[in-house]
Simulated assay, not measured.
Amino acid sequence: MSDTRVEHLTTSGVFTLDGGSWEVDNNVWLVGDDDEVVVIDAPHDPAAIVEAVDGRRVVAVLCTHGHNDHVNAAPAVAEATGAPILLHPEDRVLWDMTHPDRAPDGELADGQSLKVGGTELTVLHTPGHAPGAVCLYAPDLGVLFSGDTLFQGGPGATGRSYSDFPTIVESIRRRLLSLPEETVVNTGHGDSTTIGAEAPHLQEWLYRGQ
């Protein structure tokens, strides 16, 4: 257990949706120990991700959602490591925009438990940014991997197809703000935060959603 750790790298590329393109920096999170890891999101640069894996067994490539800037390197990482790609089924519509000829290998489901390196990740379905968006909670580590559901200062974007602001606010209120305040939130883009730091913003989000 003491050897279980969280590792981080950043990759850069382009996010595309609804006919637009945006340059983005994405966070990639590895959770595990000296023998095995999971990769949480695989964007842009498969070689950099495989290098960070450093020969360890990859239990799975976990996709927090199906936007291209979170999954475009997933097949290459899976091929290089032999790992399965897991995605919530409600995000297949987004996945298929990037990988129409390559399905994920398995599904993520709300409440599902994934074990790696002596710790456990619990899948929390948190729709809003995308219909199949999930967060991954590691209570032993005191860490939540929020994808694009929750950022430092507010919820993920909901101005594009397959997203909905009231839904994301409800996901955050119901599924995330009930976690311990000291829980570290490792996000899909930008700096990490904590549940306690974001909780005071909830009333502002609820007001905006009315």
Score class of each variant (00 low, 15 high):
Met1Arg: 13
Asp3Ile: 12
His8Leu: 05
Thr10Ser: 04
Thr11Glu: 07
Gly13Gln: 02
Phe15Cys: 03
Phe15Pro: 00
Gly19His: 09
Gly20Leu: 13
Ser21Asn: 09
Glu23Ser: 12
Asn26Gly: 00
Val28Asp: 06
Leu30Val: 05
Asp34Gln: 14
Glu36Gly: 12
Val38Arg: 09
Ile40Pro: 07
Asp45Val: 03
Ala47Phe: 03
Val50Thr: 07
Ala52Trp: 00
Ala52Lys: 06
Asp54Pro: 01
Asp54Glu: 02
Val58Met: 03
Val59Ser: 09
Cys63Trp: 07
His67Thr: 12
His67Gly: 11
His70Trp: 01
Val71Asn: 08
Asn72Glu: 03
Asn72Met: 02
Glu79Asp: 15
Ala80Phe: 03
Ala83Leu: 06
Ile85Leu: 06
Leu86Ser: 10
Leu87Gln: 06
Pro89Asn: 10
Glu90Leu: 11
Arg102Tyr: 11
Ala103Ile: 09
Pro104Met: 05
Asp105Cys: 10
Glu107Asp: 11
Glu107Tyr: 09
Ala109Ser: 15
Ala109Val: 14
Asp110Leu: 00
Gln112Met: 15
Ser113Gln: 15
Lys115Glu: 15
Val116Leu: 13
Gly118Asp: 09
Thr119Pro: 11
Leu121Phe: 12
Thr122Gly: 11
Leu124Asp: 10
Pro131Gly: 02
Cys135Tyr: 08
Ala138Asn: 11
Asp140Met: 14
Leu141Trp: 10
Leu141Gly: 12
Leu141Asn: 12
Leu141Pro: 12
Leu144Phe: 13
Gly153Pro: 06
Ala157Glu: 08
Ala157Ile: 07
Gly159Phe: 14
Gly159Arg: 14
Arg160Tyr: 13
Ser161Val: 01
Ser161Leu: 01
Ser163Ile: 02
Phe165Ala: 01
Thr167Asn: 02
Ile168Asp: 02
Arg174Thr: 15
Leu179His: 07
Thr183Gly: 09
Gly190Arg: 04
Asp191Gly: 02
Thr193Leu: 06
Ile195Pro: 08
Glu198Arg: 08
Ala199Arg: 15
Pro200Leu: 08
Pro200Arg: 08
Gln203Lys: 13
Gln203Leu: 13
Leu206Ile: 13
Leu206Glu: 15
Tyr207Ser: 14
Arg208Met: 10
Gly209His: 07
Gln210Cys: 04
